[in-house]
Write a protein that binds this DNA or RNA. Structure first.
Lengths: 335, 335
DNA sequence: CTGAAAGCGCTTACAG
DNA sequence: CTGAAAGCGCTTACAG
């Protein structure tokens, strides 16, 4: 492997000049710069990142911590982050916290050891792990980590869109299956839904909403739905909004097992728009998170040294209407 | 950040001794070692990886290249690789080739620049990209990269299991939806199925097999199945084996759209056992790849410096029987 | 068994 | 505008 020294010799300049050309220092005369660049290609020189990192204390690496890369949403995010990072000459170090705070702390320490340019973490919960105040820029993605600035979807707004949509379809008895309330995401999504529901309810007192708490996963949605759908047709909700696609898919399965057809008898909405959403039967109406924008924004902010990224960034999600929701004739229309 | 120098001063020894203790050199006397370790914890010393890498030319990092982390199978693999790597004090640099050879080459170069301990690559196709013969250990995972040793599931054997299983259920008219034949995986899976079919056919000449070529994705499975299932009930296959879960799920959707019930009228089998397989309706019978073992094996081999990992490692997949397959009464039993 | 010293490949003030 | 030199924090022969 050739080094700066080799390049310098080949070009007939000093190593300092080579270094300057490589770092795009404009003070090098064109003639010299050309010679150096020629030498670089001649020798197929590639800078030694470790040496550079030792001097500058910064590696062209971004650390990424997610709860579980197996979760399609995080996979989507990771893909886009990696792609954007690569575009900017950076590489991504990926780590899974397995939804465990202790592991998360250990992983972060391991990443920090490798002097990354920045750290993007989708925290496993809201407990503020202590992070030694390093000079490494840290960003929260999707879920708040410690008190670091957050880039995420506007969950409350997304849920609000769902509420408005369902009510506009004529549904009067709604159910919301909430995510864990010890997470900011879970709380935001619930709050947004409830708030919007109340706005509509102020105009139409016939509306009803029941809320059930669960986890974000498939199983949780299935269990809650089973209970819910046991009620007689006139009693039970005609529309179920779930806090995640996984939960909504659980609802779909419960409905199917109980012989209740979706969307004819009950409408179902998810949240996230993971790849699953368009594969299930019926295809799931859901709120799409703008993963690509989230990823770009996160990379941009974690890399940008000039701006002080103190504020949170909230990006809007969009309602994706598929086959799991339908208009209903308000059967028991209480006038 | 404290350095070896600080630790040395604190412990009253030389930096060389500190380094030796840290690298678990046994030649340091217990008394000194204790003092050093005490100093390390006192100062909360963390070695500078960049400096270490500069000297040793090796970072505690494993590079991982996958076609697309969004593919559940690779996500599963990545999770297990990361977990195993972390257990061994290594970190994983993840990169997506987007199924494109040029990008793949660029990504690999970027990873190599960062002096990883080793490289694990799930290639996007069989074309042998040129890789400068570096001292970095390279391993093929799941799909052959260049001519580097491969760790993968025994695809042929897995397909053979499917063939045997379907025939044992009494199916006589089989269809196999093959993956792309310019990939080793695609070819292996097809070959294994055909070979096993022929073994059975030697004993029972009534067996029939039709083969259709496609891609591994959902869409491809759907299209092929639509054509296949257009045939009258007495003509069309009663069992369809697909080269991937995605394809099989496409088949499921086609069958559903055409009012053909699975498994009553046609049995469907996938390959991979991605998370999807147990979420679809009906739950998919498939071949599970031993992702955890694959990951462990890959990490072990890529890190192990002693053994020369020249041979391929093939691990056995297992048939997972769910709800998409059933026994049939041989209707048109040609005696 | 321990220490002093060289050197890994860069970058960056500092002279000139 | 260019070069000589110091130094980033380690590891590793080499003396003693």
């Amino acid at each position: 492997m050739p080094t700066v020294k080799d390049v310098a010799r080949h070009a007939g300049v000093s190593v300092g000049t080579v270094s300057k050309v490589l770092s795009e220092d404009q003070t090098v005369k064109v003639a010299l710069r050309e010679r150096v660049l020629q030498a670089v290609t001649d020798l197929n020189y590639r800078p030694n990142m470790a040496a550079r990192a030792l001097r500058t204390n910064k590696f062209n690496i971004i650390g990424l911590v997610v709860p579980d890369i197996t979760n399609p949403f995080f996979a989507q995010l990771a893909l886009n982050i990696e792609t954007e990072a690569a575009r900017r000459g950076h590489t991504v170090m990926l780590t899974n916290s397995h939804d465990d705070t202790v592991t998360e702390g250990r992983q972060i320490a391991a990443l920090l050891d490798r002097s990354p340019r920045g750290l993007i973490v989708a925290a496993c919960n809201d407990t503020s792990a202590k992070l030694e105040s390093s000079e490494v820029r840290v960003l929260s993605l999707d879920r708040r980590f410690h008190s670091f600035p957050l880039v995420s979807t506007d969950h409350a707004d997304g849920s609000a869109k769902v509420a408005t949509y369902l009510i506009s379809l004529g549904h009067q008895r709604l159910a919301y299956l909430a995510g864990p309330q010890d997470t900011e995401v879970g709380r935001q999504r619930l709050a947004g839904f409830v708030r919007q529901f109340e706005v509509h309810n102020a105009q139409n007192a016939a509306l009803q909403l029941e809320i059930h708490n669960g986890q974000f996963d498939f199983h949780s949605g299935e269990i809650l739905a089973r209970k819910l759908l046991l009620q007689s047709e006139g009693e039970r909700p005609t529309a179920i909004a779930a806090a995640s696609d996984q939960m909504a898919i659980g609802v779909l399965r419960a409905a199917r097992d109980m012989g209740i057809s979706v969307p004819q008898s009950v409408s179902v909405v998810g949240f996230d728009d993971t790849t699953l959403a368009s594969l299930v039967v019926p295809r799931l109406t859901t709120v799409a998170q703008p993963t690509e924008k989230l990823a770009k924004k996160a990379v941009e902010r974690v890399l940008d040294e000039s701006s002080s990224p103190l504020e949170d960034v909230l990006l809007e999600g969009s309602l994706v209407i598929r086959e799991s929701t339908a208009r209903i004739l308000p059967a028991g229309h209480s006038s």
